[in-house]
């Protein structure tokens, strides 16, 4: 490792704030572009599953009424 201590790695001879903030912003943006499409896909799938369940429910109900009459 280039730095002698944890403290030295944090301060980087006065450039630490710049370097670490740049890396933190990058991490946040990269995390977002990985998470956002996964969340969007999951939302679509749960929405479609709900729709399918509702349709099945409606179909079962319609069938039940048919039997009763």
């Amino acid at each position: 490792m280039y730095f002698d201590s944890f403290q030295a790695a944090l301060s980087m001879d006065g450039h630490g704030t710049y370097v670490w903030v740049a890396y933190a912003i990058t991490l946040a943006v990269l995390a977002w572009i990985v998470i956002a499409p996964r969340r969007r896909a999951r939302n679509t799938l749960t929405q479609l599953a709900d729709e399918a369940r509702r349709q099945e429910g409606a179909a079962a109900k319609a069938k039940g009424e048919e039997v009763n009459t």
Binding site: M1, Y2, F3, M12, D13, H15, V19, A22, Y23
Partner: peptide, 15 residues
């Protein structure tokens, strides 16, 4: 952490 600093820019170059 494991690369040397730049001889002119110091540590800011790590960006």
């Amino acid at each position: 952490l494991f690369t040397p600093p730049d001889f002119r820019q110091g540590n800011s170059y790590r960006i």
